[in-house]
Computed example of a mutant assay.
Amino acid sequence: MSNNKHILEVCLSPDLGGLELYMSRCAKELLATFNVTSVIASRSKLLDYFHNTDLEYEQLKRKSSFSIVASMKLAKIIDKKGIDIIHLHWTKDIPIVVFAKLFSKRKPKIVQTRHMTMTRFKNDFYHKFLYRHIDTILCVTKQVEQQIQAFVPQEICPKTQTLYLGANSMKMLSNQEITAFKEELNVGDAFMIGLIGRINEFKGQHLLIEALKILKAKQLNVKAYIVGHAMSETYLEKLKQHVHENELEEQITFVGFTKEPQKFMQACDVVLMTSRNETFGLVTIEAMKCGTAVIGANSGGVLEIIDDEKSGLLFESGNAADLATKIEQLYNNEDLKEKLAFAGKQKADTMFDNSVQFEKLKDIFKQL
């Protein structure tokens, strides 16, 4: 039964990754309980996730983080739709959303899901002004919540709460389907490694290439698949050149973006999280729910997901040699790989299930 509250989901990011896809999932999941309208950027990569669906959405042209024109247009949407709560996701949207609230007649509450770390004090006049108008910040990890409480002055700090992201239960492929998929990818009998996410330097794809160089020198039968949209074509070309220079074309494949990352996760022997300081790591959660072993860097939100040598393995952040060692550990120990995969799935199903987390989000909105 629909609640009387009207929610506005806002994400004007030009990219397509975990943050943006979470916004589209919020729009879908909240629809059964609230009246939901979404606002995405003109020509947004999110358009495919709204077009030809029951989701109500508007497109807004955004030239910069500070745009009075964009704020005024958003304010008109707020008043037209009778919005009670604005739920924003991209930190760079804060100025547009705050000014839209001030320009609007309804003055809705602002809730931000904070996907990114906070690394500096927000005690200047401009940031104090912005954060004074945010009502609640939902933090994707406890670490992020601690950062906000440390860096935003107490007198204007919004209410904070940790709300983990969740993943859906996965449709599990049959052994025959996995075999057929691996044949398409030309995996053969190799140990299959997956690295799934946006391709940019922060995500650490170069570490995988360095690790594969080490593993190839040891004559291990491994193949790695890098899956995701390239945020920087320059960085992508640099990675491909690195692969070519080290004669790793047979070991490393760049797949590009896919709408079915779970197929790769289920086919893989191990899925990696190589980001230097990943805020959360939704891909890791999804891989765990797929029943696949995971290896992640020992920093950021990954530490709240992977219990080292219990639900996955951790390697020293930024250390390709240590990453290679952890991959080799699973390569040589099938029993350990299966043990970690089983425990990882149990933890993900218990702590990071999509339905559980969205029920918590709904309760938060009901209480505002």
Results as ranks from 00 to 15, higher is better:
Ser169Trp: 00
Leu340Ser: 07
Arg132His: 13
Ile77Met: 11
Phe191Ser: 06
Asp84Val: 00
Gly82Ser: 04
Val39Asp: 00
Asn52Met: 03
Leu220Val: 08
His206Met: 02
Asp93Met: 03
Ile327Met: 04
Gln346Ser: 06
Gln161Val: 01
Glu338Arg: 15
Ala150Trp: 08
Leu248Trp: 05
His242Ser: 10
Arg62Leu: 01
Gly301Lys: 12
Tyr22Thr: 15
Thr234Tyr: 06
Val255Phe: 02
Ala27Met: 06
Ile94Thr: 14
Asn298His: 10
Asp189Gly: 09
Gly281Asn: 10
Ala211Gly: 11
Ile156Glu: 07
Leu361Trp: 10
Thr325Trp: 01
Glu155Ala: 14
Gln266Lys: 12
Ala297Val: 04
Phe66Arg: 05
Gln176Asp: 10
Gln241Ser: 12
Gly291Ala: 06
Leu323Val: 12
Gln149Lys: 15
Gln154Tyr: 13
Gln143Leu: 12
Ala321His: 11
Phe257Lys: 15
Lys310Met: 09
Lys159Arg: 12
Asp84Asn: 14
Glu309His: 15
Met1Asn: 06
Ile83Pro: 01
Val10Trp: 03
Ser104Glu: 02
Arg276Leu: 12
Glu233Gly: 13
Ser44Arg: 05
Phe103Gln: 02
Asn175Lys: 09
Ala341Phe: 09
Ala267Pro: 04
Ile110Cys: 00
Met265Asn: 10
Ile40Cys: 00
Lys362Gly: 06
Pro14Met: 06
Ser232Cys: 07
Glu177Ala: 09
Ala293Gly: 11
Glu304Gln: 11
Ile364Met: 05
Glu250Asp: 15
Ser42Pro: 00
Ala41Tyr: 01
Thr234Gln: 12
Ala27Arg: 08
Asp363Gln: 14
Phe202Ser: 08
Thr160Cys: 07
Ala293Phe: 09
Ile96Ser: 01
Asp48Ser: 15
Gly82Pro: 02
